[in-house]
């Protein structure tokens, strides 16, 4: 397992490598894809990306919370939150990737 953190620059690099646009245009397109997804979510639309995931917007009602330090009760205002539901394809890709890596490292130790 590598344990790196990828950013926009890595996504732009992938677009550059796979689609063959210039680096700057690849970066702009990554930005506009993310912008369009954000705008749809902010409008309250669900975003469904087949074989990847669904971003769903949920409306939460006001509820009474408690400050865990002081025990004081405070109202939590109604709000909108976004939920992420991974597709089965994404889930199984992740499980496959991790189980094969685990087996690989065990094999190395044995060898």
């Amino acid at each position: 397992m590598e344990g790196k953190t990828l950013t926009r620059a890595d996504l732009a690099e992938a677009v550059y490598r796979k689609v063959g646009l210039s680096r700057s245009e690849s970066a702009q397109l990554v930005e506009s894809v993310l912008d369009e997804i954000c705008s749809a979510i902010v409008r309250g639309e669900d975003v469904k990306l087949s074989s990847f995931a669904t971003f769903h917007v949920r409306e939460k009602n006001e509820r009474i919370g408690r400050n865990p330090k002081t025990g004081e009760e405070v109202p939590i205002s109604p709000r909108r939150v976004m939920t992420f539901k991974a597709s089965n394809v994404l889930k199984s890709r992740i499980i496959d990737g991790h189980t094969s890596a685990a087996k690989g490292s065990k094999a190395k130790k044995a060898g």
């Binding site: 344990g3 890595d10 796979k18 993310l34 997804i37 992420f84 890596a101």
Partner: peptide, 30 residues
């Protein structure tokens, strides 16, 4: 078709990163 490939490349890259034990951080998005 190019745009389809661009969108796929982005989500495939995120999927590959997660499958190989990496994380993906997109400031302003999540």
């Amino acid at each position: 078709r190019d745009v389809e490939n661009i969108v796929s490349a982005i989500f495939d890259e995120i999927t590959d990163a997660l499958a190989s034990g990496n994380r993906v951080e997109l400031r302003g998005f999540g």
